[in-house]
Amino acid sequence: MSEVKDNQGPLWEVFIQSKNNLPYKHAGSVHAFDGEMALQNARDLYTRRGEGRAIWVVPSNQIISSVPTDEDSFFDPSDDKIYRHPTFYTVKEGVKNM
């Protein structure tokens, strides 16, 4: 990290995969001074009760986030594309498991 103002080490965001084939979920953050330490700290903090089988850590300042004031322009356009949801389609009664 280029700017270490906090002598507690930079912040890292932690993502945990709880089971094989599940998506990684944001668990929280940790302080660490390098990537390997971030990984170990995340393991000690967020998987104490067997919550995970795999971990990603990302420097917090590398996360690019949408801003709340964008909310409308960013997300609303998908609201009217209901054809992306399976319930948009009518399927003849009696057809199972499509």
Binding site: M1, S2, V4, N7, P10, F33, D34, G35, M37
Partner: peptide
């Protein structure tokens, strides 16, 4: 210890 870790972390990045 934190200073050492900062120094090492910087060289790593």
């Amino acid at each position: 210890v934190r200073e050492a870790a900062i120094a090492y972390g910087m060289s790593k990045s």
